[in-house]
Design a protein around this nucleic acid. Structure first.
Lengths: 251, 251
DNA sequence: CGCCAGCTTGACTACAATCAACCATCGTGG
DNA sequence: CCACGATGGTTGATTGTAGTCAAGCTGGCG
């Protein structure tokens, strides 16, 4: 969420990855780390609002987010847009496309971002020589699946208020896990249009719903950003518990 | 969808698996087939309506569906239920739980079923010694993710009619791919309550929506079963295209 | 200064939930 | 054999949630 230099060089060696030191991520063996390091092709610096991956394309790359926020989305032919999930530091982006062939969704940056770039065609090598990492990749896919299951439950069976509360509690919990948030209340870099496209609501109704949350002092809305004041209150309202995330892999 | 004998023996050797011969599934090497065969512990015969896996449990097993239909679902603490996806022959069930630890959703049989039973703790072995199969497992997870993405789009941005049409077109396309359906119109083994819990609608409204589809001669509703008369018409109404599924793995 | 993006609010409409019956079919037990 | 209760589907009336339309506000920026 900070520096943006329009270059493509490599600035962060995997051995000094700022994410890897977080207690949240599992340790790698030296051999694994060496491979990941050689797997990395460089870094991609993306501006806020730019498209990282586009639906229908066939990207040769795969990314891990080093810093910044993004979201995955799909659109209907007539333009209606639906946000599928959010992408935070440590997340793998483009795995689905790498495995299935063509991208079935797009990814757009919510903030300036830095991403590690991997070569999709070396994924084979990873599976051939590094079963531990191969398992990690599957683990990451299973984690995404779990999140999508939750979103479907929310979209299908929660009321507008509950959905909004769930979304914000969810994002808070994810940001906290990767050490964004600090002591001050977390600022989520969203517009109300993003919230609407996530919850499956119109902007107008989203606005009215968020106002109610603000009136209850659970959040505070600022320009293109939501301050999470009371994450526990949001969880309670949504009747949702943040999963106890154990150590997870980082590729 | 046919025979049901309450035993647990092994009746179908992997080498003679009725699914494996379908053009839809990729060929295995002899070594891979041997492993899968040894990975298989037996068969589970499940009655219609029985629970295969339960949310919150920690199952030691992993299954592949040999025959029959099932669905995955989650519930809110107050009982509201949401169906997440359907499970058809050739599908892997319980992978998420095997990788993440605890099951985060339940699975229930829509028809009598036969499932191949695998030992979860031998998944390591698979990743260690069979990179091709490991990749297949990841492929399967990515495929599920793609389906969930579609469902989220549908739930969030399609109208009730479009959602219903999408669901039925989707199920038709999946059934067709695994050779259920034959020449006669496909019968989908659902109650209207299942449809409601999938689309995030009330039963009453679901009923009215399905009537409209029936009036347009796209489907015909019978007791606990929906006959898909015009799959193309449903696709068109939902503005959805069935994915061109290439050969896929079967474990 | 004026435009644009993002947020806000009110009035009106429409889609979907809830409530309340009612029907048909099927399996069970008196 | 029939009465019953249960399951699954159908329909109409009423209520309420969310969508659409329309206007206006604010702050940033060219």
């Amino acid at each position: 969420m900070s520096l943006v230099l329009p270059s493509t060089g490599r600035r962060v060696p995997c051995e000094q990855c700022p994410l890897r030191v977080l207690p949240h991520f599992r340790d790698f063996t030296v051999r694994e780390l060496d491979f990941v390091s050689s797997f990395k092709r460089g870094e991609l610096v993306a501006e806020m609002g730019s498209t990282i991956l586009a639906e229908g394309s066939l990207s040769p790359h795969l990314y891990t987010v080093l810093s910044g926020w993004a979201f995955r989305f799909k659109s209907l032919p007539d333009g209606r847009r639906q946000i599928l999930n959010y992408v935070l530091p440590g997340d793998l982006v483009g795995l689905q496309g790498s495995i299935t062939g063509e991208m079935e969704h797009s990814v757009e940056a919510l903030t300036p971002m830095i991403l590690c770039v991997f070569q999709r065609d070396r994924l084979d090598e990873l599976f051939q020589g590094y079963p531990g990492l191969a398992f990690d990749v599957t683990w990451i896919a299973a984690r995404e699946e779990r999140m999508l299951d939750e979103h479907i439950l929310s979209l299908g069976r929660r009321t507008a208020m509950e959905r909004a509360a769930y979304l914000l509690a969810f994002l808070h919990s994810r940001a906290e896990a990767v050490g964004i948030s600090g002591t001050t209340p977390l600022q989520v870099p969203l517009s109300q249009q993003h919230v609407a496209d996530t919850l499956g609501l119109s902007i107008v109704h989203t606005n009215k719903t968020l106002r109610k949350l603000a009136d209850r002092k659970l959040i505070r809305w600022m320009d293109r950003s939501c301050e999470i004041i009371d994450p526990e209150g949001l969880q309670e309202l949504a009747d949702w518990e943040a999963p106890a995330e154990r150590k997870r892999p980082l590729i």
